[in-house]
Each structure stands twice: as structure tokens, then as C-alpha cells.
């Protein structure tokens, strides 16, 4: 059997195992984000949104739907990989993969695809739920899907890096709770940065999540606070750079080999 065949079967196995994990613990992986985001739609979109009325030329609920979908995609693609990879490190069953001929590139791809799959699944579920609260419009399907794939890839990679360096379970929640969640809330999910004073507008532009939310919203509504195609190109390059670094970390055995 050729090495390519071995690596292909190994990749399918990691992906199968990751998907199996997502569905095995669906009450932890798929249900909570659906409930949380439904509450956001209900409270911010319906109750408060009806009082706000139109926002940047669209109903407020329509304005916040893309940001809320993005929020769910980010936290779930990140959370899936950080929990799964730290779990195999903690239980030492990462050794099952280390002793095998599976390459570090396949290990990387397997986990990232698992994270992207969970992010996309949640994205689809939340989008479906949003239909109960708003009339969905798609301005550019290509930008919408591409942004969702890139975002889940970026945060799956971030989750993997977090899991590689984590020394305890506490370390796996710090980034999510103290970095990603605040950045998401400050990333223009519920407002446009055009409303902010100039200094806060400039500071907000340093927040990468703002750019993601903004171009994702462009995909739905055709309105954005940042240049769309430049952001997509930058995001793609960032993913390539992070992917190369993460592969190097796995190949060197950082966090997984003494």
C-alpha cells in the first residue's frame, strides 16, 4: 500500500472519529448553541429589535442575524478542536496516532476538518433557526459560504494551537472566555462601527472578528464596515501562515512529545 493511500485512510479515520464524537455528544455540541442563539434572536431581534426598527436600511433582526451566526461558528469551531485535541492529550490516546504512520499534516487536517464541520453544522442550524425570526436575504452566496468556511478554519486552527500549548483544562477555556467572547461582542454583532466615535472606530478595526462579521454580513445584506475582498485575501493568507506554523508545532512534537 502506498504512503498516499495510508495517509488518505488515516485522514478519513480522524475525520470519522471527530464527526462521531460531535454526534455522540450532540447534547453538548449541537444543542446548546442552537438554544443560546435562539434566545438572542428572540430577545435582541424580536423584543428589542421591534423597538429599534430599521437599522442601516434593514430591520434590526436582519442586521444582527449574520453576526450571531458568525458568533456561533467561531465559538464552536474553536471549542470543538480545543476540547477534542486537549482531550486526546489529557487521556494520552494521542499516542494511538503518534505511534502510527499517520503524518503530522494528516493529523492537522483531520482535526481542522472536524472543527470546520462542527462550525458549519452550527452555522446551518442557526441559519435555519433564524428563518423563524427574520426573512433571510442572500446578497452574495459565494462570499457567505467562503467567509463561513474561512472563519471556521481560522478558529479551528486557533483552537488547535490553544490545545497544543494548554497545560490544564483551565487553559482550554481562557482564550474562549477572556479573548474570543469579548472580541465577538465588541466585533459589531449588534451594532455598526459607523456609530462609534472616531477613536473607538479605529480601535475596533484592530479586532479581527469585526472584519469577519462585517464581510459575512455583506454576504447577506450587501453592507460592510470593511473592504470585503481585501479582508478575504488577508484572512486566507493568515490561515495559510497559521496552518504552516501549526504543522511545524505538530511535527516538532510541541506539547505531545518529550
Amino acid at each position: 500500500m502506498s504512503n498516499n493511500n495510508i495517509q488518505w485512510i488515516a485522514y478519513k479515520t480522524v475525520l470519522y472519529r471527530e464527526l462521531h464524537r460531535i454526534f455522540r455528544i450532540w447534547k453538548q455540541t449541537l444543542l446548546p448553541p442552537a438554544i443560546t442563539i435562539s434566545l438572542y434572536f428572540l430577545i435582541f431581534g424580536n423584543f428589542i429589535g421591534q423597538r429599534i426598527g430599521q437599522f442601516q436600511g434593514v430591520p434590526y433582526i436582519n442586521f444582527i442575524v449574520p453576526g450571531l451566526i458568525m458568533m456561533a461558528v467561531i465559538t464552536n469551531s474553536f471549542g470543538n478542536v480545543v476540547a477534542s485535541f486537549y482531550g486526546v492529550r489529557f487521556q494520552k490516546n494521542i499516542e494511538e496516532m503518534q505511534v502510527s504512520p499517520m503524518s503530522s499534516a494528516v493529523m492537522l487536517l483531520g482535526y481542522i476538518t472536524g472543527g470546520v464541520a462542527r462550525g458549519m453544522m452550527i452555522g446551518v442550524i442557526v441559519t435555519f433557526i433564524s428563518l423563524f425570526f427574520s426573512k433571510l436575504t442572500i446578497f452574495s452566496l459565494g462570499v457567505t459560504i467562503y467567509t463561513m468556511v474561512l472563519t471556521s478554519t481560522l478558529f479551528a486552527l486557533a483552537g488547535l494551537i490553544n490545545a497544543i500549548f494548554a497545560k490544564s483544562f483551565d487553559d482550554t477555556t481562557i482564550v474562549l472566555n477572556f479573548v474570543l467572547t469579548p472580541l465577538t461582542y465588541l466585533g459589531g454583532v449588534f451594532y455598526s462601527i459607523k456609530m462609534l466615535p472616531p477613536i473607538w472606530k479605529k480601535i475596533s478595526l484592530l479586532n479581527p472578528i469585526l472584519h469577519l462579521v462585517s464581510i459575512f454580513r455583506y454576504g447577506f445584506l450587501g453592507i460592510a464596515d470593511v473592504p470585503v475582498y481585501e479582508t478575504l485575501t488577508g484572512l486566507t493568507l493568515l490561515i495559510i501562515a497559521l496552518g504552516i506554523w501549526t504543522h511545524w508545532l505538530l511535527k516538532k512534537g510541541v506539547g505531545i512529545r518529550t
Binding site: 500500500m1 493511500n5 495510508i6 495517509q7 488518505w8 485512510i9 488515516a10 478519513k12 479515520t13 480522524v14 470519522y16 472519529r17 462521531h20 455522540r24 482531550g87 486526546v88 487521556q91 494520552k92 490516546n93 499516542e95 494511538e96 496516532m97 505511534v99 502510527s100 504512520p101 499517520m102
Partner: peptide, 27 residues
């Protein structure tokens, strides 16, 4: 390899553990 300490996912079914391990080897 049969390691000294138990190092499998305790939540996974025995059959899955073994079949997945085969997959890592390209079986």
C-alpha cells in the same frame, strides 16, 4: 505497541478504538 498505562478514550466503544487504530495505519 501495548503501553504501560491505559491510553485509550474511555468513552469510546472497544470496537471503535480498535478499528480507528487500524485506520491510522491505513487499513
Amino acid at each position: 505497541v501495548v503501553p504501560q498505562e491505559f491510553n485509550f478514550n474511555i468513552f469510546e466503544h472497544c470496537e471503535h478504538i480498535v478499528i480507528n487504530q487500524a485506520g491510522y495505519y491505513g487499513v
